[in-house]
Nucleic acid binder design. Structure first.
Lengths: 175, 175
DNA sequence: CTTACCATGTAAGGCGTTACATGATTCA
DNA sequence: TGAATCATGTAACGCCTTACATGGTAAG
């Protein structure tokens, strides 16, 4: 019966906070979830239509301007669907790294080539880490007892720990 | 012209050490690379045929038993191909986590549900970490100045650092 | 003698990206 | 007035996993 598409739950999860357009959803994913999830318009828009067809979300009035703009609203059925999913143990946490592949096969190239991969990796990681640290700062300042922010903060800290571990690894490897 | 299939380079990389059958390749991937790369038979066998067609590998004599068994051998063209790829900066290191998704949307379920996700995550991570530590031990004992082992060890240590960071994060989050 | 592992491969189908197509609005 | 961003969507295509299909061999 069911499409086990994780993207569906990402959309429902985001819609559970507030009504959003496909465009806004894409932005939210790119900023808040990008460390551990991604999606393109080519998958988001069809998935939203699907959600509507299955009665898990509805399109709300695009009242106002002449500008084409479609907000989606989660239904109670959609909320149930999401909650069920949240109770199921996560199936997989995947990591795929071309960098590690190139380190692994480093013996076929040269130490310099491996070092170059390491440089690029460190650079990218440092930038991402910096961004997360800023998120952390902001989230810490606005967090009182708000659940959503606490969970968001938890994932940000996951990213920070991970990236920090990666940078430490790169430093050690150099030596 | 080009298929930019990363799998091709994984195969070439493994074949650069020694001749292997598709079955052996799968085992190597599952044991040595599983932390940062994966592949199924359904992708490996066709990719190997492809490599042969492109002149990057050849099938060697299945001399010996009646048992169907095909070894692949990398050609010099294949080696060049691999070396070129190793010099190109890695494009992406991807991480996708259903666990983090479920933590992120934790506000929609319950603290208990999030804790349950955390338990499962910790358990899986601890098991994987243990395995990597054993690999590390073995690799340290046989490593003299061997390049291949050194690079392998580097990736193993990457995994250890990462998993350790994840466990630390889970512990802190609980508090 | 049967279970587990060795060994190769194909077919169907899912999932997702990239590129394309289109147009409005805002801001400098 | 031109660039950037807002905004929605489709089509082609690629890549991979799952399930299936087939059979040999080793060990208990």
């Amino acid at each position: 019966m069911a499409k086990e598409r994780v993207l569906d739950y990402v959309l429902l999860g985001l819609l559970s906070h507030e009504d959003l357009t496909g465009y806004e959803i894409k932005k939210r994913i790119d900023s808040g979830l990008s460390f551990f999830w991604g999606a393109s318009y080519g998958s988001i828009y069809p998935a939203l239509s699907d959600l509507v067809q299955r009665g898990l979300a509805v399109r709300t009035e695009e009242s106002g301007g002449p500008r084409e703009k479609i907000h989606y609203h989660i239904t109670s059925s959609g909320r149930d669907h999401l909650k069920n999913w949240l109770l199921i143990p996560a199936k997989k946490d995947e990591f795929r790294s071309e960098t590690l592949l190139k380190v692994f096969f480093g013996g076929e190239s040269s130490p310099e080539a491996v070092l170059a991969q390491l440089d690029a990796f460190e650079e990218r990681t440092a930038v991402a880490l910096q961004q997360l640290r800023e998120y952390e700062k902001v989230l810490q300042s606005i967090t009182g007892e708000d659940d959503d922010h606490r969970y968001f903060l938890a994932t940000v800290r996951f990213g920070i720990s991970t990236y920090q571990a990666w940078l430490d690894w790169a430093d050690e490897l150099r030596a």
